[in-house]
């Protein structure tokens, strides 16, 4: 059964008096527990597609179902709650909150979105920080971390609420080769351990080389789909 289902999704942006068609009639089915990527040149619609799946934006036409919920009809508050319950985000620029420590950044969604009790929060945060190899850095602030460390904290933050999907927009764009590879490996391990679906939008061949399914976008259309069944568990 599909975790993410897009039916005839179109997205048109109004730029001044010009209408720009970012996505044209997208139809997709993404199953649970997958490690997939949208690739394509700049302006092909990768980030727009990720934003729509992440309930951060609404399609101009079409329907989006996530976990059988028609998310394109949700209001602002409902969207926020749905995101908090079902979706984790990893950003290109890490987007950690600078005033919070590593521990507090990972803890943040459990306090502000889920109101998880303190003992449970601590347990979940420490477990995840250990999994991403950041437990010894838990009291540091983001400005005391390297790019790779920040992104691993962002991975832990995205996973701490046990979301069904994690959306990662160019997660390795600001990382060097070695660090990027380590971060991807971390996400792959998390996917295998927790069964979370990871969806990337990227140009990075290191990411592309790790995913099971690759959707290629060009000018707002899915023009190719490749499945690599040999990339499920390494």
């Amino acid at each position: 059964m599909s975790l993410v289902k897009l039916k005839n999704v179109k997205k048109i942006y109004q730029v001044g008096e010009v209408k720009v068609s970012a996505l044209k009639d997208i139809n997709l089915n993404i199953n649970k527990g997958k490690f997939i990527s949208f690739i394509g040149p700049s302006g092909s619609g990768k980030t727009t597609l990720l934003n729509l799946i992440g309930c951060l934006d609404k399609p101009t036409n079409g329907e989006i179902f996530i976990n059988d919920v028609k998310v394109n009809q949700l209001g602002r508050k409902e969207s926020a709650k749905f995101r908090g319950d079902n979706i984790g985000f990893i950003f290109q620029n890490f987007n950690l909150l600078p005033v919070l420590t590593v521990f507090e950044n990972v803890e943040y969604p459990l306090i502000m979105v889920h109101s998880v009790p303190k003992t449970e929060r601590k347990k979940r945060v420490l477990t995840l920080l250990e999994k991403v190899g950041m437990l010894d850095q838990k009291d540091k602030y983001p400005n005391q971390l390297s790019g790779g460390q920040k992104q691993r904290v962002a991975v832990a933050r995205a996973l701490v609420t046990n979301p069904k999907i994690v959306l990662a927009d160019e997660p390795t764009a600001n990382l060097d080769h070695k660090t990027a590879y380590r971060v991807i490996k971390t996400m792959h391990i998390m996917k295998n351990e927790l069964g979370t679906t990871f969806i990337f939008a990227t140009h990075d061949p290191k990411v592309v080389g790790e995913v099971e399914t690759i959707y290629t976008l060009e000018d707002g259309l899915v023009v190719d789909k490749k499945i690599h069944n040999d990339r499920k568990g390494n």
Binding site: K77, G84, D85, N95, L97, P109
Partner: peptide, 16 residues
Amino acid sequence: VSEIGTIASIGTPPGK
């Protein structure tokens, strides 16, 4: 603004 975008995308309710 960018931080607000981050916490909103994580699911922080507008009220909070």
